[in-house]
Amino acid sequence: MAQIYYEDVEVGAELPTMTKKPTTRQLVKWAGASQDWNELHYDKDAAQKGGLPNVIVQGHLTSSFLTQLVTDWMGEEGFVKKLEVKWKQFHFPGQEVLCKGKVAEKLGENTVLVDIWTEVDGTVYAPHKATVVLP
C-alpha cells in the first residue's frame, strides 16, 4: 500500500475515485457480519410495505465504502481520528455508487480534513468528513 505524507498533501487534491455496485447478496453479507437484521435491507416485501421501491443499502455499509476510500488513500501509517457521517438519501442495490473525496483543509500537526461522499448520477447521497493524521 502506497504511503502519503502530510507535507505532500495539497488542499483541493482529490482522492482516487472508487466505484461500488452494491448487490442484495452484499447487503445480506453485511447484515450477517454486523448482526443488523433490519428487514428493510433484505426483504423487498417489508421494504415496499415501508413505502420504499426496493431494499435499501445499510447506512453503515455506505459509510464503510467511504472509509475504505480514505484508508486506501492515507496508507498504513495514517490514522482516522474522527469521522462525521451524514446520509441524505438511501442507496439501492444495483446503483453505481461513486465514492469520492477531496482534501478540504490542512489543520496543522500533521492533520487533514477530508470531505468524502457517495454520488450517483451527479447527486451527492452521503456527505461525510474524515479527520486524518498523516506521517
Partner: peptide, 9 residues
C-alpha cells in the same frame, strides 16, 4: 465484515 464491504486490505 471486510468481505461484506469488499475491502481487500
Amino acid at each position: 465484515l471486510a468481505e461484506a464491504i469488499d475491502d481487500p486490505n
